[in-house]
């Protein structure tokens, strides 16, 4: 996986694995072929993705930021697949809007969100638009979050399905840190804070490539 520091508003990726760092307010990503793209430092930014026909994009984010409003807009051509992995640790006052527009056929969209929130607030708005006259599309949105205060985490799925020939589903689970796992680690001698951090980070690793996590 090679690293790219983005200095222009658009990036073209073709069958490659990249680790992007961008400090620009907005970025357009054009994807052809099998692409893995991890994005670092995603803060107060807007990302627009264009997924070409027969392409497969795995898009990963790992964030440890505060006071950030991010927006991701996805446009898919036919027969494309998108795997969006968004892992967020210790978010405070953060907002994420994802808009996924499916306007062609035979697309597979899997949006995996893993969020860890602590003493702050995080709002996720996930909009999935499946347009009329499209067929054989699958849209799966899976949000799992662990949080210290369930009231501080808002998840707002918004599926706008205008076609009958689509498989669309949404799962969301929000819960506290697993007490059994916490007890186990404390019984090995870890203090509560260290144990809790390990569990939360472990939870995120299920979504994010280890290399991205370390970076």
């Amino acid at each position: 996986m090679h690293k790219i520091k983005v200095e222009q508003n658009s990036v073209h990726l073709k069958s490659e694995e990249v680790f992007l760092t961008s400090f620009l307010d907005s970025l357009k990503l054009y994807v052809i072929g099998e692409v893995y793209c991890a994005i670092n430092n995603f803060q107060n930014q807007s990302l627009e993705v264009y997924l070409e026909e027969n392409s497969h994009l795995t898009l990963e984010f790992f964030l440890e930021v505060e006071n950030s409003k991010n927006k991701i807009k996805i446009n898919t051509e036919a027969n494309s697949q998108l795997d969006l992995h968004y892992a967020c640790l210790y978010s405070k006052e953060n907002e994420l809007i994802v808009e996924n527009n499916v306007s062609k056929d035979n697309n597979r969209n899997i949006l995996l969100f893993r969020l860890v929130e602590k003493n702050g607030s995080l709002t996720v708005k996930a909009v999935g638009k499946i347009e009329k006259n499209t067929k054989n599309n699958a849209y799966l949105e899976d949000i799992k979050a662990i949080t210290t205060n369930e009231n501080h985490l808002k998840i707002m799925p918004d599926l706008k399905v205008s076609s009958n020939l689509v498989l669309a589903s949404h799962n969301a689970t929000i819960g506290p840190v697993d007490r059994e796992a916490l007890f186990y680690l404390e019984s090995k001698g870890l203090d509560k804070k260290a144990a809790s951090t390990l569990i939360k980070e472990g939870f995120l690793k299920g979504v994010i490539n280890e290399e991205v996590f370390k970076n």
Partner: peptide
């Protein structure tokens, strides 16, 4: 013994011993 996904033996032991 319970399973803890995402937390390795080395990670847990290193953290415990350091703590």
């Amino acid at each position: 013994p319970i399973e803890i996904a995402g937390v390795s033996n080395a990670e847990m032991l290193r953290t415990t011993l350091t703590d």
